[in-house]
Simulated scan of single mutants.
Amino acid sequence: MTKTVAAVAAPLAWSNWVLPRLKLELRGRTVANAGFATGYALAFHGRPNWLSASGLGYGLASAGVVAAGYGAAVAIPVLRERLDGFADRAPDVPFDEWIAIHIPIGTVYSEELIFRATLNPLLDNAFGPRGGALIGAATFGLWHIHPARAAGDSVLATIAATAAGGLVFDLLRRRTDSATAPALLHFALNAGGALAPHLAAAGSPSSRPASATVT
């Protein structure tokens, strides 16, 4: 039980206390998060099973559904206008770098290795599948307290939303015995959430040059 408590406490302390006090820029946070996740998985014997065929299949299918949803949102004018308002939330790094490096490594790799590959199986062993799923989801939600504060988002809403996402990610992990499926879905959600507002802003009337007026 002591090992399980430590496995729950370590990521919460890292995300909400240690990492913020390092005062790193995004590139530094990506490296630090990936390093912490790798060390955490080694210390608690994580098993991501990245090369799972079923994980890849379920992950690609889930990611495809998400991508289709974002595509529809960009295509529908009313939804595109709503997305346009989120375009200014991109971090202070090149957009391509954010999508290609910081989301997949700093967020997806780090969080899926910590939670779905390592913590959730430990919680299953200690509390059973149902208890493990609920505690794992709650811990995943609480991991986001400081990021929500830093972004100026509602902390309670963020915890609730990410905990719900954690339940879905864990369901995929259980279905495939792999962290690959939740990682692909996680990437689709986060990368799509970055790309869709960017595309919406590029396609909005206010972003287009004014037509020449013939007099």
Rank of each mutant, 00 (worst) to 15 (best):
V65C: 10
V66G: 08
Y70V: 04
Y70F: 15
G71T: 12
A72P: 00
A73C: 14
A75D: 00
L79Y: 13
R80H: 03
R80F: 04
E81V: 04
E81T: 03
R82A: 03
D84P: 00
D84T: 13
F86G: 00
F86I: 02
D88T: 14
R89P: 12
P91V: 05
P91F: 09
V93L: 02
P94Y: 01
F95V: 03
D96G: 08
D96R: 09
E97D: 06
W98R: 03
H102S: 07
H102Y: 09
H102M: 12
I103D: 08
P104S: 13
V108Y: 09
Y109K: 05
E112Y: 11
L113Y: 06
I114H: 02
A117G: 10
T118C: 11
T118Y: 14
L122D: 02
P129K: 12
R130Q: 12
A133M: 14
L134Q: 05
I135R: 11
I135Q: 10
G136F: 11
G136C: 07
A137F: 10
A138M: 07
T139N: 03
W143N: 06
H144L: 08
H144M: 02
I145Y: 05
R149G: 05
A150K: 13
A150E: 15
A151R: 08
S154N: 02
T158A: 00
T158F: 00
A160D: 03
T162I: 11
A163D: 09
G166A: 01
L167P: 14
V168F: 13
V168T: 14
V168K: 11
F169Q: 02
D170R: 11
L172F: 14
D177E: 13
S178M: 07
A181R: 12
P182R: 08
A183E: 15
L184E: 13
L185T: 10
F187L: 15
A188D: 01
A188Q: 04
L189F: 07
N190V: 12
N190M: 07
